[in-house]
Amino acid sequence: MKLIADAQLAPRLASCGFTAIQTEVTMAIAKYHPELLEQREKQGKKGWHVTLRHPAPGDGTSYLDVAGDTLDLTAFHHLVCDQAAALKALGDADDLGIRKAKALGVIAAQQATLDLAALTGDSGDGVTGFEPVATVPVRRRQTILYVHASLTDLLHLDRDAVGEVERLGPATLAKIRDWLGRSEDVVIRPVLDLNHWPAVDGHDPTEEIREIVILRDGHCIFPWCAVDARHTDLDHIDPYVPLDQGGPPGQTNPHNLACLCRRHHRCKTSGRWRYRRRDDGTYAWHGPHGRSYLVTPLGTIQLNND
């Protein structure tokens, strides 16, 4: 197969780039070993994903990374480009890249309108009674923001009020209102008292306990780890002992729970690392090489240098 590809490339080797070489090799594989191409396609499919990232807190900008079927993504890109062109025709003077990003929101809003029409039997032009096309319940567009703001800010007494949005960082209340105003379903969660310490006898914490620990820790509390608390496990600092095996009641409580990402949870469970929560809310860690660390809200401090 390598010889076949070499023979095809030899006459134009001087002008060939990496893409041309890769294409020729792929065509040789497809022609003479189609089973290998099928394996490559299956392997490539394992990398399909849609990932939303918020890498720059405070600027209201996020990143959407997508890997999927070439035909599907090409068709969707054409749709985005068409919508961006329509925005320009309507007077939008922003650059093409900005208009394409705006187009994603427009397409999402249009789809939500079509979904609602399909559920209600309303065609959108005043004609009702046609057969709905949706066969499964359609989820309304819901925006869930974990916002921390003072009562003064919420009452709009401060024109330049800023709230903190978990995982997104600081944002003006105007931006937050804009996000919520474009949502069809807004969820307001009650304020939690972080000084309240509920406890349960079972191993699994209640949603209230889980939320208290997540809000308190903010991230994995292993030295220098910054994994967001909402992507972590809740670890029992003192290992949980079932009541029928002699364990005390109320073991599952915020004082005995901490946020650890899966990797560092395994480190602690293995016994190579141990830690405790101090009365001031910091975490004292001891590693396998005799080194100690203190994890504080401001960062990690190494306590010994030997």
Score class of each variant (00 low, 15 high):
I4P: 04
A5S: 15
D6H: 04
D6G: 02
L9Y: 04
A10E: 09
P11Y: 00
L13E: 09
L13M: 13
C16T: 15
C16E: 12
G17P: 01
I21V: 15
Q22F: 09
T23W: 04
V25I: 15
M27V: 11
A28F: 01
A28W: 00
P34S: 03
P34A: 06
P34K: 00
L36K: 01
R40M: 12
Q43D: 15
K46L: 15
G47F: 08
P55L: 08
A56T: 14
A56N: 13
P57W: 07
S62Y: 02
Y63P: 01
D65A: 06
G68Q: 02
L71F: 02
L73N: 00
L73M: 01
T74D: 01
F76S: 01
L79C: 15
L79N: 12
V80G: 10
V80H: 05
C81L: 12
C81I: 11
D82E: 14
A85N: 15
L87G: 14
L87K: 11
L90Q: 15
L90R: 13
L90P: 06
A101Y: 01
A103N: 06
A109T: 05
T113D: 13
L114D: 08
L114I: 05
D115Y: 00
L116C: 00
A117P: 00
L119P: 01
L119A: 14
D125V: 09
G126L: 10
G126A: 12
T128W: 00
G129M: 10
P132F: 07
A134K: 03
R139Y: 05
R140A: 14
Q142L: 05
T143F: 01
I144G: 06
I144K: 08
L155C: 03
D158K: 09
R159H: 09
G163V: 03
E164R: 03
V165I: 08
R167C: 10
D178Q: 13
L180M: 13
G181H: 08
G181I: 02
D185A: 13
V186A: 14
V186P: 10
I188T: 05
I188Q: 06
R189D: 07
V191F: 03
D193M: 07
L194A: 12
N195A: 14
W197Y: 13
G202M: 05
G202K: 09
G202W: 04
H203N: 08
H203T: 04
P205I: 02
E208D: 14
R210S: 15
E211H: 11
V213F: 11
I214M: 14
I214F: 04
I214D: 04
I214A: 11
D217H: 04
C220M: 01
C220T: 02
C220G: 07
I221L: 07
V227M: 01
D228T: 08
D228H: 12
T232Q: 02
D233C: 06
L234N: 07
D235W: 02
D235I: 05
H236V: 08
Y240H: 07
Y240G: 04
D244W: 01
G247F: 06
P249N: 12
G250T: 07
N253K: 00
L260A: 12
C261G: 12
R263M: 08
H265K: 03
C267D: 14
C267F: 11
T269W: 04
T269D: 10
S270V: 04
G271L: 03
G271Q: 04
R274W: 05
Y275I: 02
R276Q: 15
D279S: 14
A284I: 00
G287Y: 03
P288K: 03
G290C: 06
R291D: 13
Y293H: 07
G299S: 06
I301D: 11
L303K: 06
N304C: 12
N305D: 14
